[in-house]
Design a protein around this nucleic acid. Sequence first.
DNA 1: GTCTATACTACGATAGAC
DNA 2: GTCTATCGTAGTATAGAC
Lengths: 207, 207
Amino acid sequence: MIQTRLLETAIDQFGRLGFEGASTREIARASDTAMSSITYHFGGKEGLYLAAADHIAKQVREILGPLRQKAEELAGNSTREQTIELLLAMLDGFAQMMLRLESEAWSRFIVREQQQPTEAFERLYQGAMKAMIETFVLLLRGARTDLDDAECRATAIMLFGQALVLRVGRASVCRALGVEALGEAEGTLLRTRLRKTALCILEEGNG
Amino acid sequence: MIQTRLLETAIDQFGRLGFEGASTREIARASDTAMSSITYHFGGKEGLYLAAADHIAKQVREILGPLRQKAEELAGNSTREQTIELLLAMLDGFAQMMLRLESEAWSRFIVREQQQPTEAFERLYQGAMKAMIETFVLLLRGARTDLDDAECRATAIMLFGQALVLRVGRASVCRALGVEALGEAEGTLLRTRLRKTALCILEEGNG
DNA sequence: GTCTATACTACGATAGAC
DNA sequence: GTCTATCGTAGTATAGAC
């Protein structure tokens, strides 16, 4: 599928070089097609960019969807222990995504949009992030009944930050751990620590 | 000073558009000078990029330097309570930097380098980040004697992540809180929550 | 649908006037 | 030291062949 090939190359190139820095010529060449295919299939550079955002949202949905669905099922009737375990599982799923090599290209794309949102951010948010965040906050309210809604949302942000840093602070994370790249061992260490810090945040208050 | 003006514009433009995306013509124009000034003062586009990294490192040193110095003074002889309070102060200083409008341009530049390090990352790390991270880890070892060095470093990463997300996940943070932009009220809410989550992580173990 | 060819604009570097 | 002028390259978009 030439569309898919173009989209995957586009995500990589846009993520790496930004919208302005990436070139449609290069994206087409790396996808083994002519530049005008982009015009034909996506209407131009901007159309390709937005389609790339949709493509990312779809893949993120497919990866994190099952966990989210399970969370919504258990949202109504579950013990505090179950709720906390599910929150930890969602966070670990997110952390694993941040550690994955495949997510590197997406992440670059998404982080760019976080700092300078365009129409593409809207598609990413509505298409994948919103549902995940809202489910997470809902569960968190069950685990931390001592906090009001705004406090829960702020706490959720802190929890996500701990996983996000694995991707967006990657170079510093490697330096801090004294390694060239994050391998199996470092991944386990970091995920274990994340579980511990998250657990003590979740159990705070009414333990 | 035309050099300073060029550097500040460069940080903004490189951060926004990336190395390839930014144009020396535009940087010069926005700095009210000719493009060839860049060649004269910095040797070219790449020289300007590296000089911009040095400029950022210098400013970060000036902002976070005092806290770091105080930390090193107290590192040897201080109570656990003092150590924890200092760690919280350093983290809050970092969080305030992430919330500041002025740091927006730097952050974009740094985040880019984190995900795709070039020689500029080396300058940022050696020039500002290394000292801050190592001081933080040293203090953390004093507060969490139950953890070994690697575990402390991983925990430090989690703590920094909670502040980092305020900048690199900005668009989602705003959405999660249901606001257009982060104002005084949201800043206070987030910093208060950060203090609480950090405190419970720091006090874990040997309370 | 996918290609080649072309029009037009903007890029970085550099030479030379002042 | 700062400017203008110019060169060669590479960008997007588009028209038209197949």
